[in-house]
Design a protein around this nucleic acid. Structure first.
Lengths: 190, 190
DNA sequence: CAACTCATTGAGTATGTACTCATTGTAATT
DNA sequence: AATTACAATGAGTACATACTCAATGAGTTG
């Protein structure tokens, strides 16, 4: 049985993480502790009671996010056994976290080392499922699977990173998801 | 006839811009004025004699760079009339400015508005030449040219942005340029 | 209910960095 | 030669932001 205090502490921590997720999604990772604290409804100092530094908060957040995203991609991909469904599942998951995911890939170069690892992990999970499905397929271009995978990732990320050009107001994947799939499927067809 | 003073002033300005280009290429755009001044061998305040703010320096630099890169891509592409040569010319130019170009696409989201426009212009020039060459070609997949272009750009940028994974020590395009071309050419083949 | 624990507070500190400006020395002008 | 113009200087300022810590008051314990 948890005491009232423990619960409150956990709630505060969770509240900070959730708020940071929202703020970072909207403003990018240069958002300040002051903004996060205010929005979370806690005092400035409280953040540093729960996290020893901004970097640690960032790492926890991205780690958590990576875990969720990774497991979602895994789950969604697990049951798919044709390429089209796999791509669709992939895009569906990304679409659900689009804003944060864009920030992640757009500002990756400025993030702490740990955060980049998280990102690599997500890629690995996706790559794994790609391999499984693509190897079985034989009506596609004869290219190493990892090159096809990189082409797909490149295409998706290119649209996400250039959201301001492609789709400034509505989510990119909502608007262009099917076009991306269509293009890729057409390209890999033998 | 330019006076000694004018010449010195122009030289100093040029020196600052060149140094900034080098420093930003190595350290990214979060490098400080102090570092640039020191490396350029001028005092801190001199930077602000020539540029009213860091943002202005950045914009001048990126503008100049965009002009050079754009005109090089234009020149190199002008004479090419088959896809393979065009892709090669494109990669050759990018390879020559690889470090700076990577910083540009990696940190684009944090750059001032003007800088992003520059980037769009470069893309437009490349897109123009793509159109010219691709329209003539008829042994390729039946997809709108802009989608093929985006696929190519996505693929190239994906490798550049993940240089730390693909090729941490040597330039990415030197190592993977031909693989990228080969992949793309195979994909678009009907 | 008294003593104690501890999550929270927020004014205060430390640090980093863009930008200023009075001063200086050299080139241009008279 | 004397005067003026001005490029360059660098110590100093303003400001933003991560992080600290003594004080607080509600929760827990005996």
């Amino acid at each position: 049985m948890k005491s009232k205090r423990q619960l409150q502490k956990e709630n505060t921590r969770k509240k900070i993480l959730e708020t940071a997720y929202q703020i970072y999604s909207e403003q990018g990772f240069s958002a300040t502790t002051a903004v996060i604290a205010k929005e979370a409804g806690v005092s400035h100092g409280t953040i540093f009671v729960h996290f020893s530094s901004l970097d640690e908060l960032l790492c926890c957040l991205i780690q958590d996010f990576g875990d969720v995203l990774g497991s979602e991609i895994h789950q969604q991909s697990e049951t798919k056994d044709n390429i089209e469904e796999l791509l669709k599942a992939h895009l569906d998951v990304l679409a659900r976290y689009e804003k944060f995911y864009i920030r992640l890939i757009a500002e990756r170069s400025l993030l702490p080392e740990d955060a980049r690892l998280t990102f690599s992990n997500i890629q690995s999970i996706a790559a794994y499922h790609f391999n499984k499905v693509f190897e079985r397929e034989n009506n596609i271009k004869n290219l190493p699977v990892h090159r096809l995978f990189n082409t797909w990732m490149g295409l998706v990320h290119y649209y996400l990173l250039n959201k301001d050009l492609f789709s400034p107001d509505t989510p990119v994947l909502e608007r262009y998801g099917s076009e991306l799939m269509e293009t890729f499927l057409e390209l890999i067809k033998r």
